[in-house]
Amino acid sequence: MGLLGTGILKGLGVTLRHFIDTYAEDLKYILNKSGVQQPRPLRRQSPKARGLVTVEYPRERLPLPENFRYVPFLVYDTEKQDDKCTSCGICAKVCPPQCIWIVRTEDPVTKRPVPQPKEFYIDTTICMNCGYCAEFCPFDAIKMDHDYELSYYPHQEPHARLVQDKAELTKPDTYHASIHPTDWHRELEDRAAEEAKKKAAAEAKAKADAAKAAGGSAAPGAAGAKPATPAAAATTSKPAPPKAEDKPADAAGEASDQ
């Protein structure tokens, strides 16, 4: 123990250093005219930075990490002009606070389910932004949004805005690609792999048919030329999404139990 009061002085030294740092750091920034600089908010948040850390929010923004999650949205496939969602119901089941409601489309004639949601609601007043829906969706049809500027003052019906229906939830996949580039990239790869696999399967089938038509003699050769078809299906990182049968969700889940 030193002299009484040295402890306090030491502490005051720290605050003084912080005070000086706030100016020193900015001076360095201003004086350093050499070439490219990190944008200010980033520079201020880097682990090496000293001095001010403030991000002047409406003018400056911190870049959001790709994984960032706020409320979910539905992805609309702009290429196929269709919802990606097949209304399999997995997201509604994994949602911990049960904030997702889905009405499945039915074929008006056969009454068989059609892989498309008729209605889709997310009650954002219950949503806990956990990200399970996006994580467990086998079709990459629901993703977590980055738009956090959702606060509003009520005009009339206070909560009308917070229960979002399908129209409000749907956003194009170009938007998804812009906020989740890595994820999107993976999706494209998956899709390409799947296309290739489908093509290969189709080709194999065509050949087999042709062989059959030719009378059996060419069949072994055709099979030998395309041996990889089933193996390729097994090795693609994502198994082919089960085409919405009656309950693909349960089947998949049940299987994974064991």
């Binding site: 929010y57 956090y148 500027e149 606060s151 509003y152």
Partner: peptide
């Protein structure tokens, strides 16, 4: 709001600090 009148709502669980700031801007508008 079942009991007291609310001026600005923010969704999110939890809202990011920026989202709270956004609500302040909304309140200023109001």
């Amino acid at each position: 709001d079942k009991f007291i009148p609310v001026d600005v709502y923010i969704t999110g669980c939890p809202p990011r600090p920026e989202a709270l700031l956004h609500s302040f801007i909304k309140l200023q508008e109001k």
